[in-house]
C-alpha cells in the first residue's frame, strides 16, 4: 500500500494533460464491466443492475467480451484454474482498464485460506484498483465501491494498468510461481 500525501496528489493531478482529464471524465462516467463470474459474488450483481439499485444510472453496464470492457470484476474466490482465464481476459482488455476485487476471498483467501486451489491475494497476480470487502458485499457496498472507483478514475488515481505494464516482470514471476504455467491446457486446447 502506497500512501500518497495530499500535496503529491495535487501535483500528480496537475501532471495530467488536458485531454487526459477529458478522457478520464468520459471513462469515469461510462464504465463497462467484464463480468467474469469467478465465484459466489456474481449473484450480487443482478440486484445491483436491475430496478432497485440500477447501476446504469452511473453509466455502468455489463459487456459481453473483454475487448469491449473497461473494468474486470473478480467476483469471489479465485481458483488457480480460473486465474489462467482471468489473465487471458485481462490482457485482452483495452487500456485504460481497471480491476475490482470482490469480497474477502480476493483480499486474503477468506474461508478458502487453506485450499490447495485458491489464490489468497489477488493483487499478486493482477493490479487491483479497488477492493470491496464483505463476504459477499451487499449491493449497497457494491454501489459504494463503484462510486469510489468513479471518483478514483476522475482524479486519475486508478493507474493499475500502468503499474502492470511497468512491473510486468514481478507480476509474471508471481503468476508463474503459483500456476507453473499461464497457458491454458485443457481438453479444448489440445
Amino acid at each position: 500500500m502506497k500512501i500518497i500525501s495530499n500535496n503529491s496528489k495535487t501535483d500528480k493531478e496537475d501532471m495530467r494533460k488536458i485531454w487526459e482529464k477529458i478522457g478520464d471524465y468520459f471513462r469515469a462516467n461510462s464504465i463497462w464491466m467484464k463480468w467474469y463470474c469467478t465465484g459466489c459474488g456474481a449473484i450480487e450483481l443482478p440486484p445491483t443492475m436491475t430496478s432497485r439499485f440500477d447501476m446504469e444510472r452511473l453509466g455502468m453496464g455489463p459487456m459481453a467480451t473483454p475487448r469491449q470492457a473497461d473494468v474486470l470484476l473478480i467476483t469471489g474466490y479465485l481458483s488457480s484454474k480460473t486465474l489462467r482465464r482471468i489473465i487471458y481476459s485481462y490482457e485482452q482488455m483495452q487500456d485504460p482498464k481497471y480491476v475490482v476485487g470482490f469480497g474477502s476471498c480476493t483480499i486474503n483467501g477468506g474461508i478458502y485460506y487453506d485450499s490447495y486451489a485458491t489464490m489468497k491475494q489477488l493483487d499478486n497476480y493482477l493490479p487491483v484498483d479497488l477492493y470491496i470487502a464483505g463476504c459477499m458485499p451487499r449491493p449497497e457496498a457494491v454501489m459504494n465501491g463503484f462510486d469510489t472507483l468513479i471518483s478514483m478514475i476522475k482524479k486519475g488515481e486508478a493507474n493499475g494498468w500502468k503499474h502492470y505494464k511497468e512491473n510486468y516482470d514481478w507480476y509474471s514471476r508471481n503468476q508463474l510461481h503459483s500456476l507453473g504455467e499461464v497457458y491454458v491446457k485443457d481438453e479444448f486446447h489440445e
Binding site: 483467501g109 485460506y113 487453506d114 485458491t118 491475494q121 499478486n124
Partner: peptide, 8 residues
C-alpha cells in the same frame, strides 16, 4: 497453499 500462494 502456503508454498504456492503467497498470503497477505
Amino acid at each position: 497453499s502456503d508454498e504456492k500462494y503467497a498470503a497477505r
